[in-house]
């Protein structure tokens, strides 16, 4: 088995059976998995922020923002031959590790990320089949390319299948 690390802002796809896509230590970030069970095509994105609209600059890393990551991820899945109707989507992460505020506003990036990912997926007329989000614990997300199994690990707890 070969682990393929999906870093912040990255989107990776694979159809190599012995690959595992992994986003280790997700805090407020969101790990999104897409899987075409017919063609055995897997994708993972590691989203950092809700919207590319927050920046006026050019977006180099499409996977960084929820609203740019989802369409890009679908396009990458299709490039490998996935059919939109066969793609199953899961999301993990969006925790609040520390309480943050700026100018009297509470900044819950995790929650904003969760909502933004949901909105972006709805916009594509797709659905999230399973999710493990929120709270205040970090998570590691794994997707097995051969089987489509999605595993979530929280420290001190047993790894669960999503």
């Amino acid at each position: 088995m070969t682990n393929i690390n999906v870093g912040m802002g990255e989107i990776k796809t694979s159809n190599t059976p012995n690959n595992i896509l992994i986003a280790p230590g997700l805090g407020s970030c969101i790990g999104i998995t897409m899987y075409d069970n017919i063609k055995k095509i897997a994708g993972m994105a590691h989203v950092v922020l809700p919207s590319a609209k927050e920046t006026s600059g050019q977006v180099a890393l499409l996977g960084k923002y929820a609203d740019t990551a989802i369409p890009e991820m679908i396009a990458k899945m299709k490039e490998l031959g996935a059919q939109t109707k066969d793609i199953e989507i899961k999301m993990v992460g969006g925790a609040q590790m520390f309480n943050l505020e700026r100018g009297g506003n509470i900044l819950n990036i995790g929650m904003r990320n969760i909502l933004a990912v949901k909105t972006a997926i709805e916009k594509e007329k797709l659905k999230i089949s399973a999710s493990d989000t929120g709270g205040n614990k970090g998570r590691t997300l794994k997707l097995n390319v051969e089987t489509g199994t999605v595993l979530v690990k929280i420290l001190g707890q047993k790894e669960i299948e999503l």
Binding site: M8, P24, G25, L26, G27, S28, C29, V48, L49, E54, T55, S56, G57, K64, A95, Q96, M97, F98, L100, L107, I109, G110, K137, G138, R139, T140, L155
Partner: peptide, 18 residues
């Protein structure tokens, strides 16, 4: 107390909006 990556990413996201 948590995974290193998760302790850092919240802050990175605030710094790296642009």
């Amino acid at each position: 107390h948590d995974m290193l990556g998760s302790l850092i990413d919240n802050i990175v996201s605030l710094i790296c909006v642009v």
